[in-house]
Write a protein that binds this DNA or RNA. Structure first.
Lengths: 79, 79
DNA sequence: TCCAAACTTGGCATATTTGACAAGTCAAGG
DNA sequence: CCTTGACTTGTCAAATATGCCAAGTTTGGA
């Protein structure tokens, strides 16, 4: 685990969110709609492509919408 | 899992960081020093007390310093 | 009680996330 | 073609995370 770069970490987590979303047959708009409270679809796109560094709370809300635990969402051990 | 409030989530994760840090016998200054790159001790205090909403990358750097995976750091299932 | 280390808290400046909106790309149908 | 849905990308404003410094508090030991 040689100390991931910030942008690489973002890309890995973003790809994981996208994969989980697609497995569930959701569009980005669907996902944003399932997230508790307000969540912009623009932000879904930016997070999935690794362009931003998401906050704990937003990761938690995304995990909830994907019906997975935060811990599982961030289990990036095999990448 | 009834949709945690933002500040409750921050407090739970903060308490977990503090517990893991203390188990390793680190002070906040020690932990900040072990984190890759620049990390202010003020920020350690604020994160542990749940006063801020940390970013993915900082959570990753903290996990690294605690020699634990990000996924384990955020495994809050039993709280 | 005194001291020092550890931690908290406030303010400030900067960087970045985020929400919102608009415009653009792209692919699949009709 | 043309439209529609899905997604990307740019800009902007507001909120906030972060680094930094300074001052205050707490705690444990001598």
């Amino acid at each position: 685990m040689p100390s991931l770069e910030k942008s690489d970490l973002q890309k890995i987590v973003g790809a994981r969110i996208q994969k989980l979303r697609e497995e569930r047959g959701f569009t980005q708009v669907d996902l944003a709609g399932k997230i508790e409270g307000v969540f912009d679809t623009t932000n879904v796109s930016r997070l999935e492509s690794g362009r931003t560094n998401p906050t704990l709370y937003n990761l938690h809300r995304i995990a909830e919408a994907l019906e997975i635990s935060l811990s599982e969402l961030l289990d990036i051990s095999e990448e």
